[in-house]
Design a protein around this nucleic acid. Structure first.
Lengths: 208, 208
DNA sequence: ACCTGAACACCGTTCAAGT
DNA sequence: ACCTGAACACCGTTCAAGT
């Protein structure tokens, strides 16, 4: 008689959390966070609208779980890229991840989820970034300058991803290049001055 | 007898749009976009909950107006910085704006407002960025390389702003420096290779 | 132990009606 | 021309009750 339940036994169907996360991920990627309501989610999953509360304290916690999945994926992709393609490969991978999963990336960095309040999320996010920082620090280990440069590198790829995602980079700037080539070219315009004392270098370069 | 109306004549009180934008800006900066509901806004403004619809087609259009204010402010600050402090000054101004108006900045770049769908917003946003691109292109006018470098420069400051805003940069990385000094030091680790053919330069730098 | 259904306090948006 | 009040179709969250 029921119209939407597809499960065998229906009542306890093994793993509702996983089912919810899968369905939520689909809604997220198709329509964005704002369209991801618990009620729509439970409709798709064929459970009552109160069911998620047995597994997630509130909506933000479910979003936090989705964001955590994203950081895990990004972190892994970065580690693989570091081994296979070096520093610039990591940057291209970062931007590539954002373009391949735009809504997920927005969720991870958009501020809707307060990362600090969700322990598992906080930890997996931190781990993803340690990779980038470590790779850059390893190249030129003069403490503070290298650390600053690693933040600049991260900011560069992060900002490029964000600008492309939001469509802020004009079509004209692409100049007919493929997306990957464009990203590669833009990143190639940058040089890191990690070795030099940052302050002095700044003074030199600024006088233009 | 009315409890909340503070206006003289009350019914048509001159400039409801401006009143709404002022109140909305306050809610935005205090509590963020997600807390900015039209109903809460109308409660504060002392009008009926349907009143905004005489002036804005929907909630997103009101948010678009708030974002447009932000881009106008940012654009102006950038133009002043360009005149007074040169290229690096513009970058510091960009990050400074984001840190001074975090919720506004999030609204401007968070993807909640579809910029392309709001004409006035689209135009003021474009104008704000022409400034940055122009300043960099003027320094080294070799068509494509310079354009790519200007995008990289923008991505750099934008990403740094975003990472600082979301609290993704660990306290430890600051190493006791003031925020302004930290930003300045991070930006100083970067050199632009706008003059050189981007591709060749990339190949050289990559082999590390 | 896990899920449901009714209930509550919110939303955004529409529209006939008021001034 | 501009604003209101009732109405509609949604939300997130809570809680007693069901299996």
């Amino acid at each position: 008689m029921s119209t939407s339940r597809r499960r065998k036994h229906s009542y306890h169907h093994g793993d509702l959390p996983a089912t919810l996360l899968r369905a939520a991920g689909k809604i997220l990627e198709e329509e964005g966070v704002d369209a991801l309501s618990l009620r729509e989610l439970t409709r798709r999953a064929g459970v009552s609208h109160a069911a998620p509360y047995r597994h997630f304290p509130d909506r933000e916690s479910l979003l936090a779980a989705l964001a955590a999945e994203g950081f895990a994926l990004l972190g892994e992709a970065q580690r693989e890229a570091a081994a296979a393609a070096g520093l610039r490969g990591m940057g291209e991978t970062y931007v590539g991840f954002a373009l391949a999963h735009p809504q997920r990336f927005r969720l991870m960095f958009g501020g809707t989820v307060r990362i600090a309040r969700h322990k598992a999320l906080r930890e997996v996010a931190t781990r993803a970034f340690d990779g980038l920082a470590g790779a850059l620090a390893a190249r030129s280990p003069e403490a503070q300058g290298a650390r600053d440069a690693s933040i600049a590198a991260w900011a560069l790829v992060h900002g490029l991803a964000q600008l492309l995602l939001e469509g802020r980079v004009a079509q004209a700037a692409r100049a007919g290049r493929s997306e990957a080539r464009f990203v590669s070219d833009v990143l190639a315009t940058i040089r890191f001055a990690a070795g030099a004392p940052a302050r002095a270098a700044a003074a030199v370069d600024q006088s233009a």
